[in-house]
Amino acid sequence: MTIFLQTFVNALALGSLYGLIALGYTLVYGVLRFINFAHSDIFMIGAWISFTFTGWLGWSTGAPAYALPVILVLAMGFCALLAVAIEQIAYKPLRKAPRLNVLITAIGVSLFLQNTGVLKQVFGTQPQRMPSLVNDHVMFTLAGVGVQFVDVLVVLLAGALMLLLQWMVFRTRLGRAMRAVSFDERTASLMGINVNQVISITFGIGSALAAAAGLLYALKYGSLKQSADATWVLLGLKAFVAAVIGGIGNVRGAVAGGVLIGFLEMYGAAYLSPHLKDVYVFVVLIGVLLVKPSGLFGKAVVEKV
């Protein structure tokens, strides 16, 4: 029972992180119809830039209570700006090009971010420890399982951001514009929507969420590996799988997919074999795609001639 509960706590926290990252994939796919391979690198930069800001503000050894929101806003803002810049420079000229080209460009951006990050002048190759911005203590004990403040924080903050996004997409003018662009770009522009602007904003929002995930990741796991490390790519890849399983382009699906992947991975590791946890994720992915290619929550799109 202890193992079950402990795994539950870990899986929920990890699943929330996957969900947050998956949202970025799904948003971008919604408006641009391409897999933003550089998204996992935005997540990585979110984690590293949180670390950097913490150092600059002198909170490496002890942080005031307001440190977390400040760093969160700074990291989200930085990554949103970075993503908009990337979108303007690298993706915008390719609006009319085949999707594969945009994909290759995204790979190029990903390689660029990773390899710039390892430069001595940027983040360097040494792993770093993220200072704990919050007082990390055991909040309550449940059947022998100590639930830590960070775990609760990760789940709550991720949940709050998801709800915020949900509200924004379905309840605001901007959200309506995003959905319109996603549905039919041409018609949307005929309706007076500034498509380019909406795409840029969507990029920014998705990347801000990834940055939040990066900060939460850094807080929960504590150590940051160099930017070209496989850890980041693999995390991003699994988050992407989460988006696909949930039905890419579907906001709720991404969250559900993320939590599902988190549970699949952690419970598979705890009860079957921890070595094959990546295999479970990809096997389930292939299975889902074979049975329901549009994902669990996605709508099947009938191709028109």
Binding site: I104, I107, S110, L111, N115
Partner: peptide, 8 residues
């Protein structure tokens, strides 16, 4: 990476 983006 940069030349890749530029060529694309």
């Amino acid at each position: 990476a940069l030349s890749l983006i530029a060529i694309m």
